[in-house]
Design a protein around this nucleic acid. Structure first.
Lengths: 229, 229
DNA sequence: AAATCGAAAATCGTCGACGATTAGCTATTG
DNA sequence: CAATAGCTAATCGTCGACGATTTTCGATTT
């Protein structure tokens, strides 16, 4: 999700990218790889010296990340990695479902044969991952990619951006926030039905199926929220 | 939509609010009141001296505003008020419709009598504004308020935040981006039907009505985009 | 011993300054 | 006269420093 670039190298190359954006990516990476955990305090000075820059660009990066929901800034106290409570996560899941409904409705009428092929390839790959010992490590990224492609193909840039930002927040709540609700094989069967509906240009059907498919992971997150952590 | 506070006063009071957030509100206000127009260049130094602060806080405010889509930052060239093209606006309208569908589905099962009363009061007020010479200046803010309340009552904070940010962007595209698609009376009749469905706890009905109601303004924006410029 | 108070350290918010990049203007050339 | 090249001014990106606020930790009191 987050393109990883060697910060030191990027520092020498840039000239068409400000330090701020590089630092933002770096912070995103640190959160993504759990070097920073929800609730953790982000020390401006330490980050600055670690990246060999001054505090200015670091602060600017944090302001951007605050707006996108990854960080939380408390006046005169500092910035912290945002904590996603189960309640927040539930809200995000609902929002995600609504976005999927829209994606399906937009995509079904306009999908091309090439795009169908791309999606079908992903579904097949997931089938293999699901049958081979149920390898979630293989299944999960494919699942993420499949869902993402649905939004890319939907052709609404703003919808895609909103979806990605939302997924990033959800991963803050749980690393595998979007794993299939039931068995992988069952989940992928739904992927296949969704793809069929889209390929048949059935907007309403695709929209309904996608929303339902995605709402399942919400229910799952709620039942697990009690025993996890 | 944007709470207006005298910047000079706020500057003396704060102590629990950073300059950055005050400046961000000020820039939002300037955009809102068309002191800054889409495409305009935002001079950091000028803004800083006008507000009697240094460039640091101004830059931080701009980074936040960039992330929320109001400003666009070009490296080594400066920040500009974002230009919303008709294509972007169409995307936002679609997104808005999807959000309304979700709001309706969430709100219908849980709305209280008090909330219904609040909404009904707004609808009645809009009726008066619509009949009295069709006063759009009176109708428009009520319309905005009515829609906003639907999201507030839906009880999903993140949904509300997304909606508000989206409306703010839409107003960047056109000051009256959300005016009724047909005659005010007709539009308000839809408001009444929506309210009835919600009051009757009909989630699916409300969801469908709200989405349709809101999609109408998209169609309108597209037909006007050609002659309004 | 627990709680409260106060001083010292750490961190944040803000500022002014410096080099680097870009834009605008003038002069030169074909 | 148009186009290009070079110079100048304006602006951006980054930095280090200073006062203000918060936190830490030990001393004092009950």
């Amino acid at each position: 999700m987050i393109t990883s670039v060697d910060p030191a190298l990027a520092l020498t190359i840039r000239r068409e990218e400000s330090l701020t954006s590089i630092i933002r990516r770096e912070i995103e990476r640190m959160i993504d790889e759990r070097e920073l955990n929800p609730g953790d305090w982000v020390n401006e000075a330490m980050l600055a010296s670690r990246l060999k820059v001054s505090r200015g660009p670091v602060r600017e990066a944090c302001r951007g990340l605050e707006q996108s929901g990854l960080l939380q800034v408390v006046v005169n106290r500092g910035v912290f990695v945002r904590k996603i409570e189960p309640k927040d996560a539930a809200e995000l899941y609902d929002l995600r479902a609504a976005l999927f409904a829209l994606a399906g409705r937009l995509l079904a009428p306009k999908i091309t044969k090439t795009q169908v092929a791309v999606l079908r390839k992903l579904v097949n790959a997931m089938d293999r991952a699901a049958s081979a010992e149920g390898d979630l490590d293989k299944y999960y990224p494919l699942n993420l990619e499949y869902h993402r492609k649905l939004f890319e193909f939907a052709g609404n840039a703003r919808l895609l951006a909103t979806y990605l930002s939302l997924v990033r927040e959800l991963h803050l709540f749980r690393r595998r926030a979007l794993e299939p609700s039931g068995r992988m094989a069952d989940s992928n069967a739904e992927h296949r039905r969704i793809l069929d509906a889209i390929a048949a240009h059935d907007a309403e059907g695709a929209s309904r199926l996608m929303e339902a498919h995605v709402l399942a992971s919400k229910g799952r997150s709620e039942t697990e929220a009690s025993d996890t952590k």
